[in-house]
Amino acid sequence: MRTAPGRYLENRGHRPFSRSALDCMRKGDALCVWKLDRLGRSTKDVLMIAEDLHSHGIALRILTGNYFAKGEGKFFFTTMVTFAELERDMVVERTRAGLDAAKAQGRTGGRPTVITEDVLTVAKARGGKGESVTAIAEALGVSRATLYRHIG
């Protein structure tokens, strides 16, 4: 029985697509990824997947770089994987810092709410009179889900 190259991904929390894509690969195939950091979440993951592919005779093609399987190429590949993980971690850190700075300035992300205090007061008053949520939502021009989210 042939062992599929996706065996490393079992119980690793990868998306089902990654696992199924690797399970379909055969000797002589090539796995193409846009950037090295798209192959896995950590240096260990990328290295294990690359080794798994290599042991099954499957080529790895990184569209924004080169991959060499032997000798110095393996060293440079390992180094590039490490830098890709560092770059990813730095992007996450900068994004988190930016979101925290925006929050400290009183800005929040996401779509602006359509429910103002006045609309909420009207909705509660109409609900108190026994009007249905559907009728209130239609009259105020909002969805039922929005009303439920704000009224509780």
Rank of each mutant, 00 (worst) to 15 (best):
T146Q: 07
H150G: 01
G40H: 03
A21Q: 12
R144M: 03
F68P: 04
F75C: 01
T79K: 12
M1N: 12
Q105H: 07
R96Y: 15
E131T: 08
V91I: 15
E87T: 00
A125L: 09
M25S: 10
K70Y: 13
L60H: 04
Y148F: 14
T82I: 11
C32S: 04
R111N: 11
K124A: 15
C32W: 14
T116H: 05
G152S: 06
T3R: 14
I58G: 00
G152Y: 15
A30T: 13
T108P: 05
G71L: 08
V33K: 00
E93A: 10
R26V: 12
G109D: 02
A84G: 03
E51Y: 15
A69N: 14
G13D: 02
S20R: 13
G98W: 15
T108A: 13
G109H: 03
S132Q: 08
T78P: 03
R126H: 13
P112H: 05
R96E: 13
T64Y: 01
M90F: 12
R2P: 14
G127D: 13
F77A: 00
G152M: 01
S20L: 07
V46Y: 06
Y8L: 12
A145F: 10
G130T: 00
G73K: 07
A102W: 12
D52S: 15
M90N: 11
L147Y: 04
R61I: 11
G71R: 03
F83Q: 04
M90G: 01
D118R: 11
T146R: 00
K129V: 02
F17L: 14
I136E: 02
A69F: 13
D37I: 02
D118Y: 06
T95V: 08
T3C: 15
G40P: 00
